[in-house]
């Protein structure tokens, strides 16, 4: 097991390295694009341009430029915005991260519970009306853009029905968990539900397909021959084996949400997370900020994947030895 974890971490570091090169190439080596002008922002003076050129070594060879970028990002951590002059990027990300983490963690709990329950109920009721119903709800959830769903939710809870059913819904925004846990949950409730809807749909559909496959496996026949109840067969045998693929999917999704894929939900609900930071930077074409959030986001994804793979090793005994 220790060897397995070690190997997984080494490969995670390799992937992080590759991703940093990919990000670097996109921002600094895209043909026909002048990175200095891009980084300095729309109305940069020649002095600022020269400063950018020096700071990122744009007149020096690619490997040195790469080194400088990593230096600014991770070692000196002094990457600064040229749009809002002097704003350091890394502290902003650090301040925003708890918001994103709160949003994604809560949503993940909801979508895992709803998605797994939906998948199990659908698989257990194959051939009855509830199975296609759940599957259709799943398709609908997959087909709704989260940022639009968020607006509809806002429209209903903040405007149309705010004076009646939803008078308890606080205005958009974020309250830190440490300052008031109740308000924290209340402010995040609808963002959680909105973000969770898409993934609950995906997970219910994936899990149902996996369960239906598993229920045709020989080991399920053996379990029946043992005289176990259908409920136990479904939950302890079929579901337990199907969860393996759910977990690996969860690693990708959770990582990419932490890494920035939740930005649309953050924008719509006015949550000052990493995604919001990226969004504001996009509006101003504030490249250093975007570079910082993308790089940190990508690293979170890789890290989350590595952690999930280790969990995977605990779930599936076959992986540990392979």
């Amino acid at each position: 097991m220790a060897v397995f974890i070690l190997r997984r971490l080494v490969s995670a570091i390799l992937v992080m390295f590759s991703i940093s090169i990919l990000v670097f190439l996109i921002f600094f080596a895209t043909p026909g694009v002048d990175p200095a002008a891009r980084i300095a922002g729309r109305s940069a003076t020649p002095q600022v341009l020269a400063q950018v050129k020096h700071e990122f070594g744009l007149d020096r060879p690619l490997p040195i430029r790469y080194g400088l970028m990593m230096d600014h990002l991770f070692i000196k951590q002094d990457l600064a915005s040229y749009v809002n002059v002097g704003d350091k990027v890394i502290p902003q990300i650090e301040a925003a991260a708890p918001v994103t983490l709160s949003l994604v963690l809560g949503a993940a709990v909801i979508w895992l519970v709803v998605g797994v329950a939906g998948g199990v109920i659908a698989a257990a009721n194959r051939g009855k009306f509830i199975d296609p119903l759940i599957m259709f709800l799943g398709i609908a959830a997959i087909s709704v853009p989260a940022y639009w769903l968020g607006q509809v939710v806002n429209l209903i809870t903040q405007s149309k029905l705010h004076s009646s059913i939803f008078s308890w819904v606080p205005p958009s925004g974020y309250v830190a968990l440490s300052s008031n846990p109740g308000e924290w949950a209340l402010h995040l409730l609808f963002p959680w539900l909105t973000l969770a809807a898409l993934y609950a749909g995906i997970y219910a559909r994936v899990l149902r397909a996996e369960l239906v496959n598993a229920l045709n496996e020989d080991y399920v026949r053996t379990a029946r021959a043992k005289g176990l109840s259908e409920r136990r067969i479904l939950l302890r045998h079929a579901l337990r084996c199907s969860l393996i693929s759910i977990v690996s999917l969860f690693g990708l999704d959770f990582g990419s949400l932490i890494g920035g894929a939740a930005l649309l939900t953050e924008v719509v609900f006015g949550l000052p997370g990493v995604g919001q930071l990226t969004y504001t930077a996009l509006q101003n074409l504030d490249l250093p900020v975007i570079m910082g959030t993308v790089m940190y986001g990508a690293f979170f994804v890789v890290l989350a994947n590595a952690v999930v793979d280790v969990a995977y090793g605990f779930l599936d005994p076959r992986v540990r030895l392979a």
């Binding site: 496996e217 020989d218 080991y219 026949r221 053996t222 379990a223 029946r224 021959a225 043992k226 005289g227 176990l228 109840s229 259908e230 045998h237 337990r240 084996c241 393996i244 779930l315 599936d316 005994p317 076959r318």
Partner: peptide, 28 residues
């Protein structure tokens, strides 16, 4: 009924299958 059949299966009637490679749940 399945509930009564279940008591027979495994307790009074044991089964051995053709392919032992797939007959056991892999994760336990």
């Amino acid at each position: 009924a399945d509930r009564e059949m279940r008591v027979l299966r495994g307790r009074d009637i044991g089964m051995i299958f053709q392919d032992p490679m797939t007959a056991l749940t892999p994760v336990y």
